[in-house]
Design a protein around this nucleic acid. Structure first.
Length: 454
RNA sequence: GACCCCUUCGUCUAGUGGCCUAGGACUCCAGGUUUUCAUCCUGGCAACACGGGUUCGAGUCCCGUAGGGGUCGCCA
């Protein structure tokens, strides 16, 4: 009922401004790190704007001179780029607006809607305080429905500090007016502010936009993300090997669903299906396992070229020098088994060095057993005698060997695999051998015998 | 403490009074496919916070309780 009511009212208020195009915005302060909670708000704003055929703007709230460095701004823009959040128009930098903010404060003062006072008698001088109208306030939240607050529960608040700088509330509202924002979609932590902001809009003689408040996202312990949760920044997810598209999709689904069973969705599908009414009003918990699964789905959707480019990049950062043609063959082997970008290097390491590690347990359980030396020696001879060494010939040769020797597949394949790769799991053995090549395969078998089976 | 908000499987969710013996996804478990691992296929475990109403009928509406969260800055 509540949902239905809110939907109606929300539509009605939009119809009133029928000629106005929907405009949303992302208004972060550039601090060098973008929290995924903020990024999710950006995603929802973007999705909503695109769904409505409207515009998505960026406003950089860079008034904190200490933290708002050019690097921080670049990091912010990079994060948006990584997610593919394209903006309409030029970003508005809040520092360029200070004069306008101050003039508006003067206007409110002149109209008697604000007053000056040394709040709390600090002796720091007088600040400008906005006078709340003294009436009950209510608005219809696009997600939460009807919200009300009694006059006695709302206090006057500072809009210009005694040092002459504008406070968030004033700047934020004024800039939203300047940018023509029709829908303010932001975190739940702003609901209380909304009552203040609505009063400001009215005092300023501006149309009050629609508001929608997104529930917070919480960590794996179900607690709010704090500064200590190291993995809450967008950059951390990138470092952990997640793809921007996958994180985007995952975050979009964290608090919203299309209403049917779709989960892995294209941008187009998400844009088409996205509505505020379908957003959840309770907090959502981040589940890295599901994110990892979804990332795997996106890794699978990558084209050969895209995957190779990513894999080369990963190799490069790991300091591994790779010959392109060979590396591409290796990538082809692991392409479908990788869940995150970070999985690649550990999975292909042994292809690029003779100095790879042997898994101790694998050596103990599969290699250091009676008869293994003989098996490896015979396999080596078979490989040496092969006219051509490729996937098909090694496959046939080993299968023949298994048959004639009367040994099980496992008794032959496992030792060979460990001898050439050091580990028990990996790509299909024969393609692996083919990529490795005959000489390397034989050398590795020899070395394994010397090292563990003498 | 005051004000506001939230509550369906472990997690993300579907559910707008009868279609719900509550559906899907991730995870986990079992079986199958596979030379290994992953994939893939099949099956399984698992939830309406609690208590009262309203109603012929409640996960869905109302009230209360409990739990959780947000806000109470000359931070944003």
């Amino acid at each position: 009922m509540n949902q239905q009511e809110s939907r109606l009212t929300f539509r009605k208020s939009r119809r009133r401004r029928y000629a106005v195009k929907v405009r949303t915005r992302f208004a972060p302060s550039p601090t060098g790190n973008v929290h995924i909670g903020n990024m999710r708000a950006a995603i929802y704003n973007w999705l909503f704007a695109r769904h409505m055929g409207g515009e998505f703007l960026l406003r950089v709230e860079d008034t904190d001179i200490e933290r708002s460095t050019p690097e921080a701004i670049k990091a912010l823009l990079d994060a948006m780029d990584w997610f593919g959040l394209d903006i309409d128009g030029e970003p508005l930098y809040q520092t360029t607006r200070q004069q306008a903010h101050l003039e508006a404060a003067e206007m409110l003062l002149a109209k008697g809607l604000a007053y000056k006072e040394d709040k709390g008698g600090t002796g720091q001088g007088e600040c400008v305080i906005f006078k709340m109208p003294g009436t009950d306030s209510s608005f219809v939240d696009g997600i939460k429905g009807e919200m009300t607050k009694k006059a006695e529960n709302m206090q006057d608040f500072v809009i210009v500090r005694s040092n002459g700088t504008p406070v968030f509330h004033l700047a934020n509202v004024l800039d939203d007016i300047e940018q023509g924002i029709t829908h303010v979609i932001r975190g739940d932590d702003h609901v209380e502010n909304t009552f203040r902001h609505i009063a400001l809009y009215k005092a300023l003689g501006a149309d009050v936009p629609n508001f929608a408040h997104l529930p917070m996202i919480v960590n794996a312990q179900g607690k709010p993300y704090s500064k200590r949760d190291g993995d809450a920044f967008v950059g951390d997810f990138r470092d952990k090997g997640f793809l921007g598209d996958a994180l985007f999709n995952y975050l979009a689904l964290l608090g919203w669903s299309p209403g049917d069973d779709r989960e892995v969705m294209t941008r187009k599908e998400m844009i088409e299906a996205f509505t505020l009414e379908r957003c959840q009003s309770s907090a959502a918990q981040v589940d890295l396992r599901k994110l990892t699964w979804m990332n795997g789905e996106y890794m699978l959707k990558l084209s050969r070229e895209e995957f190779d480019a990513i894999a080369f990049q990963a190799l490069e950062t790991a300091g591994i020098d790779a010959e392109p043609e060979y590396a591409e063959k290796v990538f082809g082997l692991v392409r479908e088994r990788v869940k995150t970008v970070a999985d690649i290097v550990p999975m292909v390491g042994y292809f690029f060095t003779e100095d790879f590690e042997y898994d101790e347990k694998a050596v103990r359980k599969k290699l250091q057993k009676d008869g293994v030396v003989e098996v490896l020696n015979q396999v080596k001879e078979i490989f040496q005698s092969l006219e051509v060494f490729n996937e098909a010939t090694t496959d046939k040769a080993l299968h023949d060997f298994v048959e004639t020797s009367g040994l099980g597949f496992g008794a032959v394949m496992a030792p060979v695999r460990i001898a050439v790769s050091g580990i028990q799991s990996g790509p299909d053995l024969f393609p692996l051998l083919a990529v490795l090549g005959r000489s390397r395969t034989i050398e590795r078998i020899d070395r394994t015998i010397d090292q563990f089976l003498q």
